[in-house]
Amino acid sequence: MAIKLKTPMSDEQVKKLKAGDVVYVSGEIVTARDRAHQRALELRRSEIPVSFEVIYHSGPLVKKNREWRAISCGPTTSARFEKYIPKMTKKFGTKIIIGKGGIEAKNCVYLCFTGGCGALAARAVKRVKAVHWLDLGMPEAVWVLEVENFGPLVVAIDARGNSLFKR
């Protein structure tokens, strides 16, 4: 049975997720890659324009006509951001990371979407709510996405540290 989640999520809800569960996420998610993590950790908390409670490891392909629209926006390799994860959870209270490929960190719940499935992911993006730090370039900027039933995602690491990537 697939689980439907809506952001922001309570700690209670997050703790209930078990490695191997299939979930669909609705609500706001925020993208971050190398450059965004670096800047977020450099700046003061008050200078950060978004909540990093749910981080999506993704560099979306977007196009602006009148408004920004997501064309293709699957996940990117989370392992590149491994070293930022403990710092992000500490500074921003990050509860959930959505990405692909696996991480070792156990500071937060890790959901995976199938890599390469950018068209499928974009179908779930109802609106690009905002973009910040576009000076970092399209992939590295922070995109605030409103998603509806984004998934199926797999809970790859749960709050107890159970991981599907451990073998």
């Binding site: 191997g20 299939v22 993704s58 560099g59 979306p60 392909l61 064309i71 293709s72 926006c73 699957g74 990117t76 979407f113 199938t114 890599g115 390469g116 499935c117 950018g118 068209a119 499928l120 992911a121 974009a122 179908r123 199926p152 797999v154 599907l164």
Partner: peptide
């Protein structure tokens, strides 16, 4: 879970072809 991943890939391939858009954002 392995089947779920492959199902997503196959569905994504179909959708990208139908819409004529990049199947993966990493072009």
């Amino acid at each position: 879970i392995a089947r779920l991943q492959l199902r997503n890939m196959l569905e994504n391939i179909k959708l990208a072809k139908k819409l004529g858009i990049p199947m993966c954002q990493d072009t």
